[in-house]
Computed example of a mutant assay.
Amino acid sequence: MTIGSDEDLEKMKEIGAICRSVLAAMRARVCEGITPLELDDIAGRMLSAAGARSAPKLAYDFPGHACISVGTAVAHGIPDDRPLRAGEMVNIDVSAEKDGYFADTGASMCVGAPCREVAALLKATEDTQRRAMYTARAGRPISGVARIVEARAKQHGYHIVEGLNGHGVGRWIHEEPRVSNTLSLAQKGRLKRGQVITVEPFLATRSRSYVEDADGWTLRLQDGGLGAQFEHTFVVTDGAPIVLT
């Protein structure tokens, strides 16, 4: 969507803050022994208390309030009852709707203290997200996001998981434009003032692609290794973005 009024902006700030708070609460509870289902219950209770609804449930009938991906799963993981183990990678993606407005955010983390390899991947991915997001300004090519992500991934020696991209958001959970993390001749167009999008790089140590599990949801690194993702919803401006999540 494109922000068309003060009400649009205030409503987007509200749902963005809700998603941010839910993600923060879930991250704070990630520890050895807790289950993804227990984490998902936090999301469900907080969204309900805020008068919001889970976007994946609403839009796609997803079997959970949030996507919680563990180990080699990098996206769309279904919350289950297997306790988390120390050293595992976890990605939590929270998207929600309130009053017809949607926002989307996510982060990867380690259960317990990360080893050097995991810490480096997490830092590089979060830094890549921030740099790409702050480069996304009105009038610039949408492909500029991919240029930053590719450059940072190469600098740090990581692969980009292809096919997982950012997107427009606001009146629905997934809108145009597709905000690719890899350069493509098909990625045309320029960013517009007031446009609401997400930037979410997926970086990995060994895999460039993913496969879908038999559950029809979970996306897993095809060649194994470690993967990480960070995501924010923001409003494009002539300068620094208005980060909503």
Rank of each mutant, 00 (worst) to 15 (best):
T198Y: 02
V149A: 08
R116K: 09
C115E: 03
A138F: 04
G168I: 06
Y134M: 06
V149S: 15
L203R: 01
H174R: 15
V179P: 15
T135P: 03
A113H: 09
V161P: 01
S209Q: 02
I160C: 01
F202H: 12
D215A: 04
V145I: 13
G168P: 10
Q195D: 06
A204M: 00
R208C: 07
V111T: 10
S184Q: 12
A151R: 06
N165A: 10
Q195H: 07
G144M: 03
A119D: 11
V111Y: 07
I197C: 04
P141A: 13
S180M: 12
F202D: 11
H167E: 05
R131A: 15
T125Q: 01
V118A: 09
T125D: 00
A119M: 08
G112S: 01
V211K: 07
Y134E: 08
G189E: 04
A120T: 14
L203M: 01
A151H: 04
G144F: 09
V211I: 05
L121A: 00
G194L: 01
R130N: 08
A138P: 05
L122F: 08
R147N: 08
A120Y: 13
L203Q: 02
V196A: 00
A132N: 10
S184C: 15
R147L: 06
G168W: 07
T198P: 02
K123W: 05
H159K: 15
R147G: 13
A214C: 11
A119S: 14
V211N: 06
I197D: 01
F202P: 05
R190D: 11
V149L: 14
E200A: 12
D215P: 03
T182G: 05
I197S: 02
Q195A: 07
R220W: 00
E126R: 12
R152I: 05
E162H: 12
A124Y: 04
Q195V: 09
S209C: 01
A120C: 12
A151S: 12
S209Y: 06
R190G: 05
V149T: 14
V179L: 12
T128L: 10
S184A: 15
S207Y: 02
G163E: 05
L185N: 10
G166T: 06
R208Q: 08
V111K: 09
R220S: 00
A113K: 11
K123P: 04
G216Y: 04
G163Q: 03
A153M: 13
R206M: 02
G194E: 02
H174A: 14
L191I: 10
E176M: 07
L191P: 05
G163M: 06
G166D: 07
V169T: 13
N181W: 08
L185M: 14
S143Y: 15
N165Q: 14
C115F: 03
A151I: 04
Y134P: 08
L183F: 11
K188L: 15
G144A: 11
V161M: 03
L121K: 01
A119I: 06
C115I: 03
T198E: 05
A136C: 10
W172R: 07
L203A: 04
E162Y: 07
K154G: 11
E175A: 01
T125S: 00
I142M: 04
T135W: 07
T205I: 00
R131I: 09
Q129V: 05
N165G: 06
E162F: 07
N165E: 12
S143P: 14
L191N: 10
K192N: 14
G166H: 07
N181M: 12
A120P: 14
V161T: 03
H167N: 13
L219E: 10
G166A: 01
N181I: 08
